[in-house]
Design a binder for these strands. Structure first.
Lengths: 151, 151
DNA sequence: ATCAATGCAAACCATTTGCAATTAG
DNA sequence: CTAATTGCAAATGGTTTGCATTGAT
């Protein structure tokens, strides 16, 4: 089950003309191991990998994440907290992000389809759509924010 | 005309309980002087101010931009090129950003209104919606990209 | 007078890069 | 074999922060 998962990634890598290296598979696997709502940053991914492979340097993780995202195998997320986060693109969706606990929820409606109809769309490549606010548990009133608030 | 403009900002600052300082007015004025499509970053704003007031340190510009944005007097933009950009919020709008020349066009349709109807909206504070692609002039085919491409 | 805002310099932190050594195809 | 990838260490670059000073109310 995990093996065929790796095979899937091997194929996708090759399909993009990228070499299949253990480091890349490690990162892809790590990314899948995170929960769907996790959206780890480079450092968190590196931490997780370091548990088993402490020899892999952070710079390699950064470089691999960049190329995987560049090839479209994974998605980059910009949730306005200073670091780039990543997710595996199973389906196309957007996010609601809690400004206090940073928990995220999926938003399945995508505004771009509407945009494409409206405008004489000049070669749309990608887009962002995120909603920021406070989740039910993090009522603004009670309790301090757990994280910085960068709306 | 410029004087009453400054008065307007003085009022807005006071309305937020912020002190009216020459540095703040300078930055607000600078921000207005930029074209609507400019979206300067902190450094560019600092450059412009430095022409007349070279004594104002960059750190002050950063601090002021942060507090102005925090109070909602100006908007922070995250156009995925590594720096925070700013604009004065005359009307609510979104952006089409050319991945090659970084030129931006306004998108007036806002997807959040739809979201608010759909979900049991948990205290929405802000949102982002940007579309990235290539403008008419920067046809992907001809000519090198002028800037990095971070879709 | 009093607290917020500034100036200055140093620190931060995520990310990138140069180059030599490996390694996949 | 040879071009792509990795490891390592050092550099970048935007942004923040500590602290003493200045200034707005």
């Amino acid at each position: 089950l995990e093996a065929e998962n790796l095979d899937k990634w091997r194929d996708k890598l090759r399909a993009q003309g990228m070499k299949v290296t253990p480091q890349r598979l490690l990162i892809l696997q790590a990314l899948e191991d995170f929960a769907d709502e996790a959206h780890p940053g480079a450092e968190e991914i590196w931490n997780r990998i370091a548990r088993e492979h402490p020899e892999i340097p952070k710079a390699t993780v950064y470089r691999i994440l960049n190329s995987l995202a560049g090839m479209g195998l994974i998605n980059e997320l910009y949730l306005r907290d200073g670091k780039t986060r990543y997710e595996i693109s199973h389906d196309h969706h957007h996010h609601f992000i809690c400004l206090s606990c940073r928990k995220t929820e999926k938003i399945m409606e995508c505004p771009v389809s509407a945009y494409l109809e409206t405008e004489d769309c000049n070669r749309v490549i990608s887009h962002s759509y995120e909603v920021f606010g406070y989740c039910s548990e993090c009522n603004r009133s009670k309790g301090e924010p757990h994280h910085d608030e960068k709306p």
